[in-house]
Nucleic acid binder design. Structure first.
Ligand SMILES: [Zn+2]
Ligand SMILES: [Zn+2]
Ligand SMILES: [Zn+2]
Ligand SMILES: [Zn+2]
Lengths: 168, 168
DNA sequence: TTATTATTGTTATATTATAACGTATTATGC
DNA sequence: GCATAATACGTTATAATATAACAATAATAA
């Protein structure tokens, strides 16, 4: 099982994670002859900075502030499109929002655990889950191509807080 | 495993399915003191008629034609909201579309198999899948509340056609 | 009937996403 | 370097999806 669950929910030096992600993204671009421009890197940084998925128009605001100039929607969507193509970010359909992928190098079919309290999203790639899904598809003669799995509930931190607040 | 996969992909007397679904919906409403109005029943019928999920504005068009009068978006969204609440329909997030639930009576956590070729969507409730997901959540201290699982690929029928067309 | 609640009609608008086209920047071949 | 092509960005307008707010109507209850 591959997951960033602990990193999402426990405090740590996240600047290091962000920098590592950006370096890794630059490598990937070099490898694929794609250009990591200022706009694209800024969007990727913003998505990594946030522990919760960001919508396109949240990104627009934050990007405008970061770059010190007005940014129009197409600019944001182009950056999103580019990063999605490279597998550097994922789209969370139920939220119309985007989030950085913690393991863009490994081919993986993933799922997200999204906290309904604090909005955090952790990514999980689990072979057991994927195998069960694959065999279910096989059974029904469905040729699986890709998946979008979004689980909603309470993250470890919010689960604990809820228990505590029940004592009020 | 509970699924309407075969009904979705094999020809059969679908009018019977629709009528059964509407009867069942009426029963559910009676039971919960909810009102099954003309608008709501029409939307449910339209969603059942279609083997593929319908968007709100597709529903608006078809509903206007069915009822012979102009229908505004809020009317459609209210009917959708009502039917979602009762568990008579589901939302497919990745498509911004809606589809009738084939087994609204049974408490179930479901997934959808969505054909990227013909657009059909089959619903599957599978304990093995749900158990694996639940235990994955347990492992990561995530308190699961609900899920949105959307699998994309080729339905049985389109899988066969693809094989055939490969011989061209 | 009258009061109360639930539903629908209507208008306006919010939110998310894309089309179209021109300009600027970056890479490539000479 | 310079011409050329390819790529990325700026700008404006608009499409597609969804909701807010309030008035009118219909169903239920008293
Ligand atoms: Zn990922
Ligand atoms: Zn949380
Ligand atoms: Zn269902
Ligand atoms: Zn198909």
């Amino acid at each position: 099982m591959l997951t960033n669950s602990r990193l999402v929910h426990q405090s740590h030096d996240h600047e290091r994670c962000i920098n590592a992600a950006l370096l890794c993204a630059n490598d990937l671009c070099a490898e694929k002859n794609a250009r990591m421009t200022t706009t694209r890197e800024s969007v990727l940084r913003l998505l990594w900075q946030s522990y919760r998925p960001l919508g396109a128009y949240q990104l627009q605001d934050q990007l405008a502030e970061m770059l010190g100039k007005p940014i129009a929607p197409p600019t944001v969507y182009r950056a999103i499109e580019f990063l999605l193509q490279l597998g550097l970010i994922h789209r969370i359909h139920s939220l119309n929002a985007y989030i950085g992928c913690p393991f863009p190098n490994s081919e993986h079919s993933n799922l997200f655990m999204i906290c309904t309290q604090c909005g955090s999203a952790a990514e999980v790639a689990h072979n057991t889950v994927n195998n069960v899904l694959q065999s279910t598809c096989d059974k029904l003669n469905f040729t699986l191509q890709s998946q979008s799995i979004e689980l909603f509930g309470l993250c470890p931190r919010c689960s604990d807080n809820t228990e505590v607040s029940n004592h009020d």
